[in-house]
Amino acid sequence: MELIKRLGLNKNEVGNESHIAVNTDICINCTDKPCTKVCPAGTYEEDKEKILIVHYERCVECGAALLACPYGALKFHYPEKGISYMYG
């Protein structure tokens, strides 16, 4: 099942403001982009120009973002609303 569909199974109340900040000045020089591999929600993607885009609305608040970037370009805090699991 496609990731976006899988994420769609969850109840996620997305706020208007992103709870993830990224310093793209650092990402420009990052070739491997480990954050894109680690995040289980596909929150981080590289666009055609190799710029990092952050789909914060996909985030399931697992906490991996706190460790995903070895270069300190990601800043993450919990959103006020966000995910509510039915099973967990």
């Binding site: 994420l7 199974l9 969850n10 289980p40 929600a41 697992c62 906490g63 995910i83 039915m86 967990g88």
Partner: peptide
């Protein structure tokens, strides 16, 4: 990885939730 994992396990029931945690 988890997508492939489920397929390798041969689990084809309806998926009800997807979650992750450190």
């Amino acid at each position: 990885i988890i997508e492939k994992y489920r397929e390798n396990l041969g689990m084809d029931g309806k998926i009800l939730e997807y979650s992750a945690h450190l």
